[in-house]
Design a protein around this nucleic acid. Structure first.
Lengths: 321, 321
DNA sequence: TTGTAGGCGTTATCAA
DNA sequence: TTGATAACGCCTACAA
């Protein structure tokens, strides 16, 4: 492996001169710099990250933690983050799982963005207390070195319930997400509260935010001999897709007998037939914002609290009257 | 930050004793080890990755390179890789974009798995020649330190074309993927060759493997006043979904007037109405295999060439006679 | 069994 | 303007 030492030897200068030249210091003549740069290029020199990190005590890498890589949800969000980080000269790596959580105390990354309910809150707080910078997108955590950027689940849920009310639904089935999940909890709580307010009956079916659980939920509902039209609020789109799946070969028609609203506005929702009505928000902006905030934290700049707002997207799965 | 030096001070031993104890060397008494371990835990000691890497010259991290994070394609593949790597005590990070390609020469990662047509082949070869271990999933590259695990595009394409032939199609529209992409090229070439063999007429519409290009392709086809039923081979499922989108509000029905076969068997295909007929293969196995091979390369073990085989998945979008 | 010391590749301080 | 040298935190041969 070629290091600055080798370059120094070839160029006939000392290693410190090489270092200065490569790092654009004004302490070397333009001529020596040129010479050294040329040699470095010819020798395919690339600085050793470990050595540089050890000395600098920073990596310029931000770690993003996800529960898993599945689901069609993450794409836009990650693209947004990446763009935001690139703008500031930071790299992004995407991780998942317990082991890679160690990157934080190991100082492999300068900061972490977390959207991973399997990442325990006390661990996050623990790391933050040790001085690591963390942005959480999926829980409320008040602590030094932690900032949160949350989705306005309450607003989104209210929008959805409002539509059920306008449609004069007498009962709504709520397909819930994972019990530990923040977004999931928030959506469920708000749904219950709002439905009570409108005096609408409801029933909760436990799901876990993946398609299969939506299908299972639909099956469960059907076993209860429900009355039609059936009103379903799937607390995320993936489960709504699972519901479509269940009724695919049934004589019951989505948009007529079965009326569904989802949440998240994932890409494929718009390709469903009929289109899935859902709650939307800008995942791209969410990602950009998260990137911005983690950098501001690292640079010790002041940060203003932000939230991601939602809108209602109409679709044939929930016809307007 | 607490380092072995601090632990040594507290424990009243030298730093090397601490190091030995933590690394499970047999050069310390069980008692001192216990004592040191306890202290280390109490002090929340975590080894500094940069320092350790600098010394050991390896990170135990494998980098996976993707073109982007979008698309519902990657989930299973990454989960497979992660599982395979975990089994061997390696961590996985997912990267995208030019900048992060530097992780390779910087020695941030011990090896790379590439499924990213925007990663230039000559760069890959260059890195490999410098001794870096690389597995490619999206191109044919014969070189030292490079192994490839490819999808059997030829086999899959033959399966699809065979079905068009069996259906007595007289003309097939081929919706192509990105011109630079290996899988895309392979599928297109094989399609042409096979269709010629069967004496079936065809027309190529350029796409780029994303949904929108499928919709555009459908529009283009319709402007040609085609005869029905229309036979379409979408070289990946995402574009097939785009085609569904186009005909959603049309009087033409998919599975009757429009007969489609896709490629990849992505999750959502089975939720489409009618189900998308497609070419399937195990993404999970592909990921596991890639993980296995990169580790074997690092450990200098012998590796046997492998390929990922395909099967045909029937669906209402292409009714059997 | 434990301690001393040199080195991994860079950066940065201080002299020259 | 350049060069010698001491860190950064950890590992490990060698000495005690």
């Amino acid at each position: 492996m070629v290091g600055i030492k080798d370059i120094a030897k070839v160029a006939g200068v000392s290693i410190s001169t090489v270092s200065y030249a490569l790092n654009g210091s004004s302490k070397v003549t333009e001529r020596t710099r040129q010479k050294i740069m040329t040699i470095a290029n010819e020798m395919n020199y690339v600085p050793n990250m470990a050595a540089r990190t050890l000395k600098r005590q920073q990596t310029n890498i931000i770690g993003v933690y996800l529960t898993d890589y599945g689901g069609s949800f993450y794409g836009e969000l990650l693209d947004g983050m990446k763009k935001g980080l690139e703008l500031q000269g930071y790299e992004m790596i995407v991780c998942s799982g317990k082991q890679s959580q160690l990157f934080i105390p190991e100082r492999m990354i300068d900061g972490a963005i977390i959207l991973d309910w399997s990442f325990q809150s006390d661990k996050i707080v623990h790391y933050a207390n040790q001085g690591h910078q963390i942005v959480v997108l999926d829980r409320e955590l008040e602590s030094k070195n932690i900032h949160k950027i949350l989705l306005d689940n309450v607003g989104g849920t209210c929008l959805a319930i409002e539509h059920f009310a306008l449609a004069n639904a007498s009962k709504v089935y709520l397909i819930a997400g994972p019990e530990k999940g923040y977004d999931s909890q928030k959506r469920l709580q708000t749904s219950q509260k709002e439905l009570k307010m409108y005096g609408i009956d409801y029933e909760i079916i436990q799901g876990n935010f993946i398609e299969a659980s939506g299908t299972a939920a639909a099956e469960e509902i059907m076993q209860h001999n429900p009355t039609f039209p059936l009103y379903i609020f799937a607390l995320n789109d993936e489960m709504a897709i699972g519901i479509y799946e269940y009724f695919k070969n049934s004589s019951l028609k989505i948009g007529e007998d079965i009326r569904i609203i989802g949440f998240d506005n994932i890409e494929v929702g718009k390709f469903l037939l009929p289109r899935l009505a859902t709650i939307s928000y800008s995942k791209h902006r969410w990602g950009m914002l998260a990137a911005q905030v983690i950098i501001q934290m690292i640079k010790q700049e002041t940060i203003e609290a932000e939230q991601i707002y939602t809108t209602y997207v109409a679709g044939g799965s929930f016809p307007e009257r």
